[in-house]
């Protein structure tokens, strides 16, 4: 009884999991539900959230497998130590890097808010939104808030130059941005003074925000943690990944020498096509014939495309049938085992 309930529950959830996308595809829900795009977006995020919650599974498994090797000093314990060191290093550097980037965007909070505020004033006045203060009053509030923040930002921005100098980085980029930033300060103050149109003020604040962002970003990019992150990613990780996969290049050479034997008509056909494609895609092929790239193209567009399409159509139909069987829990009974 118990196992039957569990198995049925799994089947039910499998069905519910797929139902939304099937219904959403078949029924024009946007005709029945107001603002369906937004609802759809939120539901999609819910699905992604379920999958994302599994983010730590890989780490837990690695800790269990390699951690136990290390703790009990089993064979390969040193390799496990290296792996766990790499994992801990990358995790901590990523967390610190994120913290640094959050700090950088936090610095921009007030300018973001002001930029957002002026945009909201414009859109509210266009849509004649009720329950909000008069436009004039809001612009005055905007001006007060801007002037209040001028000094705060002046301090923050001046610090950027010092930090960049301390880090012995190229300070020329900072100097020109600082100059632009200060020019915009005066322009915005002046715009408030002469009661300039709101879109002009919006444009100026947005431009200033962008310059400030560029400056804070420079601090972030030149930080120790960001450099360490890039060293790990660009220096070690990319090289290691590329080298691992490039071994395949050497293995295909040995396979070509040992396994590509013309022992049948089919093998000869395959070799002929392979040679034409290989010679058609390299520069040296042009030394043999100028037409080789065109021949390669014809081969890929005709026999290859049609044969591959036949395989693709067949495989996709099979995939669709499999998907249905999975959705309806009739594919294979994964609700079996000692728990069910």
């Amino acid at each position: 009884m118990k196992s039957n309930f569990r198995a049925n529950l799994v089947k039910l959830l499998t069905f519910i999991g797929g139902m939304y996308f099937v219904v959403e595809f078949l029924v024009p829900l946007e005709s029945y539900i107001d603002n369906f795009q937004d609802v759809h977006s939120k539901i999609s995020d819910g699905y992604v959230l379920i999958g994302t919650m599994a983010f730590a599974i890989g780490i837990i498994n690695l800790l269990l497998v390699y951690g136990s090797k290390l703790v009990f000093k089993r064979k390969g314990w040193f390799d496990s130590l290296v792996l766990l060191f790499g994992l801990a290093l990358m995790l901590s550097v990523s967390v610190l890097d994120w913290r640094e980037s959050l700090h950088s965007s936090k610095n921009l909070y007030e300018l973001n808010m002001l930029s957002n505020f002026v945009e909201t004033i414009i859109s509210d006045s266009k849509s004649k939104k009720k329950g909000v203060p008069e436009v004039k009053e809001r612009v005055r509030a905007l001006e007060r808030a801007y002037l209040k923040n001028v000094d705060v930002y002046e301090r923050k921005i001046s610090l950027v130059r010092n930090v960049i100098l301390e880090r012995k980085e190229d300070v020329s980029k900072v100097s020109s941005s600082l100059k632009d930033y200060r020019i915009l300060n005066d322009k915005i103050k002046n715009a408030f003074l002469v009661n300039a149109d709101l879109p002009i003020i919006q444009e100026l604040i947005s431009e200033q925000r962008q310059i400030a962002q560029h400056l804070f970003n420079l601090v972030y990019e030149t930080s120790f943690i960001k450099k360490l992150y890039r060293l790990l990613y660009d220096g070690l990780f990319v090289s290691l990944g590329a080298a691992m996969f490039s071994l395949l290049g050497i293995y295909i050479a040995i396979a070509a020498y040992r396994a590509f034997r013309i022992q049948s008509f089919e093998a000869a056909l395959m070799l002929g096509a392979a040679l034409l494609v290989m010679l058609g895609q390299i520069s040296f092929g042009l030394w043999i014939s100028e037409d080789l790239p065109a021949i390669r193209n014809w081969l890929l567009q005709n026999p290859n495309s049609s044969a591959f399409r036949a395989i693709k159509i067949g495989a996709s139909i099979a995939g669709l049938v499999m998907a249905f069987r999975m959705w309806l829990s009739i594919e294979s009974d994964f609700t079996s085992g000692e728990d069910f």
């Binding site: 290049g249 056909l269 096509a273 494609v277 290859n304």
Partner: peptide, 25 residues
């Protein structure tokens, strides 16, 4: 037979894929 031509094209392309990785390194 026609599939063999397709697989030949596949092999030729695979050679380029694998060798590109080696050349880059």
């Amino acid at each position: 037979w026609l599939m063999m031509i397709c697989f030949g094209a596949f092999f030729g392309s695979t050679v380029m894929a694998r060798m590109a990785l080696l050349v880059e390194r």
